[in-house]
Each structure stands twice: as structure tokens, then as C-alpha cells.
Design a protein around this nucleic acid. Sequence first.
DNA 1: TACCATTTGTGCGTATGTATG
DNA 2: CCATACATACGCACAAATGGT
Lengths: 228, 228
Amino acid sequence: MTGWEDVRAEVLRRIRAREWVPGAVIPGEEALAVEFGVARATVNRALRDLAESGLLERRRKAGTRVAVLPVRKATLEISIIRQEVEARGERYSHRVLAQRMEAVPMAVAVRMGVAVGVAMLFVETLHLAEGRPFAHEVRWLNPGVLPGGVVPDFGAVSANEWLVQNVAYTIGDIAFSAEGASRDEAAALGLAEGAPVFVTERMTWTAEAPITFVRLLHGPGYRLRTMV
Amino acid sequence: MTGWEDVRAEVLRRIRAREWVPGAVIPGEEALAVEFGVARATVNRALRDLAESGLLERRRKAGTRVAVLPVRKATLEISIIRQEVEARGERYSHRVLAQRMEAVPMAVAVRMGVAVGVAMLFVETLHLAEGRPFAHEVRWLNPGVLPGGVVPDFGAVSANEWLVQNVAYTIGDIAFSAEGASRDEAAALGLAEGAPVFVTERMTWTAEAPITFVRLLHGPGYRLRTMV
DNA sequence: TACCATTTGTGCGTATGTATG
DNA sequence: CCATACATACGCACAAATGGT
């Protein structure tokens, strides 16, 4: 009956009810464990969870305090474009518009952390939902990460999906912005030049080497949502 | 020397090295605990962490398997606009452009889950960085959540910040999109009509009642980033 | 359908490590 | 340097979910 989620709920209630006000130190784990009649580990689990979600701040020796300006943490689920389309109940397809070795432009070189002019595999893809343009993808891919140096057939499986399945867990960062579509981008997506597009730029790395830089454009109507 | 993070690192290595391929069931917690010479709880902590980040899928009785299409989970830190501006080393200020009770339009009523025409507190704010428009905010706020029914002075502390500090932990969802600025929005942000703007829409609730619906517009140059 | 065996989920009490006021 | 409070570990136990018989 008293699990760590119950403890979390009660702590949450006290924060909400302002029984514990922002900035104040709350009782220690041991004290709460006694009060709630649970083990200290159970309290720890609950408080750790609340700290992860930004509501509490915990420091050794200093104790646990209620965050003054809680930074809310929202989690985005970055899925394969195919999954995204299929989740809407639409049929997915994609077309490779270009694929070639190409010297990276400066903007990309900077983000990938390589010298300007280094040759990378350049892949341009149009993702379709029910045959209509859904997203336009431009990608630079470090050929060094391809197993055996063999370039896969991105016409069969999109680069997006192929990488997730074939190149191991990576770290990276993502940035979102709104931009006006360039002439080429607009043409690919069937929009007017300058139309607002939702831009996702993603850079991924292994421990040492850059893997890929992707610039993904979604046309009007696209919404990126967080999962509660 | 062998903490749960070490266990996680080793499991990660095996996934990366494809010793455990996507879709395959990995050894049970007990077996891994024996192999690594740690307690089962330690293995559990490590595997739970990997499952939370989307790399493993766990089900009772079925065991733990390597995710076939790992859904990457990116965490966004949603901070107060003032913090965001100050983090850039710029001076923050804001102006309340409008504040009145107003019947919610249908689009907002639907999202807030209230009847069309219900009166909410409407607040329009312009956020400035170094005196230049940074973001335009339109907010509908349920007056029922105001302590004592008193409307705070949003000219002193922005509604954004006031709510975080005075209304307790909430659940909500956020959606991001790119749109063309309307005439009024463009005017507020000093842009041309139809210019691409980055739109953040946030809806928050307490357990039962809607708290607030916000529509936040950022002009060109704004980028929303994830933390690694 | 009913039951059982397996596997993860979580709890308890205790002990030790570690950052830090 | 020490006392404190969190961080994490261990071993055990039982609960809950669920695949299979």
C-alpha cells in the first residue's frame, strides 16, 4: 500500500499545498522514512524521481529543498519518420533525391567538427505520407562509420532508419527552429518560397567521431508534441 | 568499483558491439548479477535506466530485449523566459500589452476543455531582450486558480514566472510548430506579416481544473535546443 | 479457462561511500 | 577535520504481470 509512488504523491501534495515552500529544506530521508513508515531507500527513490523532474534540488550534506524556479523537463520521443507517419494511419514512402560524396560546406563542417572541404556522403531524401511530401531531409554522413565502407541502399531503407538499426547508440544534440523555405526546399515540399517550415537539426557522434548531421524540414501543419 | 553505472556501461558496450542484437532477449537480472558479481538490485537499476532511455524494452516474465527501433528520448528544459534571456547574457524586461477578462474563443476552449464563452483572464505580454522583442505571449488563465481570486500584478513579475512560483506542480503538454506571423503578431515582434515564427503552445492542468493555455511566439533566430 | 513458473518490480533493513557545510 | 545528508550497495522477500502448459 505504501510504495515509493505513494511517497512521491504525498511529497508532491505538500509542495502543491505549500506546506513546503519553494527554497525551503524539507526533512531528511531518514525522518521521512520514519514518518511514512517505509524504508529510507523508498523515500530516496521518490525524492530522486522528483529531483529528476526538476521539482526538488538535492545536495549531499545540504539536504533536499523545494526548487524555487522549477525547470520543467519535457521529454520528446524522437522516432523514425516512418513510424511517425504510420502512427497517423498514413502510408509511408520516401524518395532519394540525391546521393553523392561531397565536400561539406562551412556551416556543416563547423557543426560536425571537421575541416571545411572534407568529403562526406551527402544524401537528400523526400519523405512522403500518402504520396504527399511530409518532410525534406538533407544529411551529411561520415563514410567512416559505414560497416566495411559499403554504402547501403537508402532507396530501400531510409538513411534515418538504417542508421538507427546499424550504427550503435550515439550521443547528440537536437535543435528546432522556424525558418522560411528556400527556393529548392519549397520546391521539394510543394510550398511557396519563404513559407514557414519547421526545422529540426540533429548532430550525432560516437565517442570520438562525428556520425551524421541532418537537417529536416516539415511543412505547415506539422506539430512536435511532448508526451505529457 | 562496480556500481550500477559500470553495469550500465558494460551492457551498453554489448549493445553497441552487437553482442546483443536488436530484438534479442538478454540474460535475466539474476544471471547478470552473478556474472558481474553484483546484487540483482544493482543490475535492475542499470537496466531500468537503459529502458527509460529507450534502448531496452522490459516486460515481466518476457524478459529484457534490445529495442529494435530505439525511440530516442530527448529532454527539453523548459525554463522561465527571463532565465532564458539572462542565460544569453542579455537584460530581460517585459511589457503587459493587455489584461482583461474575456470569453475564450473556440480553439482555446477545446484545448482547455471548457465550454465556449467561459470567461478567463486574458493576458498578452511582450518579452524583451536588451529592449528588443524576444517573444510574444498570449495566455488564457483560469481565474479559479488565483489564490484568493486576486489578480496579481503581471507588470512586476511576468505571468510565466508568477505561475511557476505560485501555482503548484502541474501536468501538461507542449507542442511546437512553425507558422507565419499574423498581422498583429508581426507588429508586436517587429516582423513582416507572414514571417516564419517559432510557436510554442503549452496547456497545463492541476488534477482536475485547467490552469492556463499559453501561445508563445519567437521570431527568427530562435532555436530550441535539447540538453545532450 | 485455470493454473503455474518465470521474470521483472519493488520493498526492507543494513552498511558503506562520498561530497560538503 | 568532522558531522551530516545523500548515493549506492547487498541480500533477502514478496508482489505483480504474463507466457506457456
